[in-house]
Design a protein around this nucleic acid. Structure first.
Lengths: 238, 238
DNA sequence: TTATTATTTTTGGTCGACCAACTTGTAAGG
DNA sequence: CCTTACAAGTTGGTCGACCAAAAATAATAA
């Protein structure tokens, strides 16, 4: 059915929660609220904004989730002590939360994983190596089963874990599932012997603490996904 | 540092929301729920788990934030179609959500920013350059004012924006505020002329599309923070 | 005047009831 | 027999009331 022209930017079709966040943003930008301040009680905000307390509550939840405010039980919420411009940028990002394009996701994954494996090669301890060996063995075991993809992911996850940088790991955990869902949907991955060899190569390089070589193999390992993403990007752009 | 025995991870002091998430995790691991399934209605989950619907609601909200489930209004929530091991790992990460150590945050920032500026140098368009010039001018203008830190952040933010990789930018937006709060708290940053020179150097390198040089200057630019983080790490470890 | 205690108010957290949108089952119409 | 239209049930979303913890205020004792 020929619906209304939806080319015009949303703005009026935001969720109630996001509209509340937008109001909070206005309060900060207008100078009424400053970083470090304790913002009004949920009930007062609800009354002032003309929304229900539930919506205000969810908005504050979201803001706390992104580290913009800190909520203390039975006490109130305080605005993180950053400067105004920074806060404004952060909140804008929360509002414009978009689903990322595939290529950017893959590009980020490559960057994170090549550096995660480099750090892993430098920093692994005995426990890490035990985990790595086990994860690699599991992948080989599941190579011909439906669990292959899961074990593959687990192997990469173990490497990230062994980098001893929890931020790397957390960010990979955000990026990789998004990639996998798209990748699985658009291309059925047949078992590829190259992948096994590359996993083995990475294991060897890690064992002899050769971070550069490990990173090189990882980059090659992910090249297939990156090329696929590039191809997809070009298809969409014409 | 002695290897503390943190084997007993499970604390009885978890928040109600996290305990609900843990229950959902059990449902998935026990095979009752599989990826792709629609999970029971909020009321049924609340009854089954012995929690209020509010807690179940917040738990589902959190799971949706992390992309583990997708909630459709008036219809239900479905589990993301990943494999079981992946899902289990993701949920575990959500539960063990810790505040990251300063060094890992800085290490991640350096990685992201050096690569963001490299891509920025390669990809900027006319609009990007206008934004970059303006951000740089603003920093110079605010150098002696209280807005310096904010303008500094805005400059870096503009670079990330011009990398045309929204994932890079989003992740920097997560990392940098955390760093700034710690950095500001522990060390009062006096206006440093070196910073200005480095900003200028980055601008020049970007203009002539010299990504490597821009990345080099950025690495040097962030070296101070990285050294500070290293120092802090060593202090904490002795 | 000051420090301590008791009381009231405010605050985020929780719960149950209701709403509108969606889904499902069923019967009417072809 | 199949399609369509309608009605009943289910679901996430919303709202107002209540709870206990925290903060603010008042009262008391030193």
């Amino acid at each position: 059915m020929a619906e209304t022209f939806t080319g015009l930017k949303e703005q009026s079709l935001e969720s109630p929660t996001d509209r509340v966040i937008s109001k909070v943003k206005d309060l900060i930008n207008s100078g009424i609220l400053k970083p470090g301040d304790k913002l009004p009680a949920e009930r007062k905000l609800a009354l002032e904004f003309g929304f229900g307390r539930t919506q205000v509550r969810e908005a504050l939840h979201k803001l706390e989730f992104y580290g913009i405010i800190k909520t203390l039980p039975q006490s109130g919420s305080i605005i993180n002590g950053l400067d105004i411009n920074t806060l404004d940028g952060l909140i804008s990002d929360v509002l414009n939360l978009q689903s990322y394009d595939f290529f950017s996701l893959v590009e980020t994954r490559v960057l994170l994983e090549t550096n995660a494996i480099r750090l892993c090669a430098e920093r692994w301890n005995d426990q890490d190596m035990k985990n790595l060996v086990r994860a690699h063995a599991n992948y080989l075991r599941d190579f011909d089963t439906a669990d292959r993809i899961g074990s593959d992911f687990a192997f990469h996850r173990t490497i990230a874990e062994s980098s001893h940088n929890p931020v790397f790991k957390a960010m990979l955990m955000i990026v990789i599932p998004d990639i996998m869902t798209i990748y699985q949907r658009d291309r059925i991955c047949a078992p590829n012997p190259d992948v096994t060899n590359e996993h083995q190569g990475m294991m060897d390089a890690i064992k002899r603490r050769d971070g550069e070589e490990a990173a090189r193999i990882m980059a090659q390992h992910l090249k297939g996904v990156l090329d696929f993403a590039k191809l997809k990007l070009e298809q969409e752009n014409n």
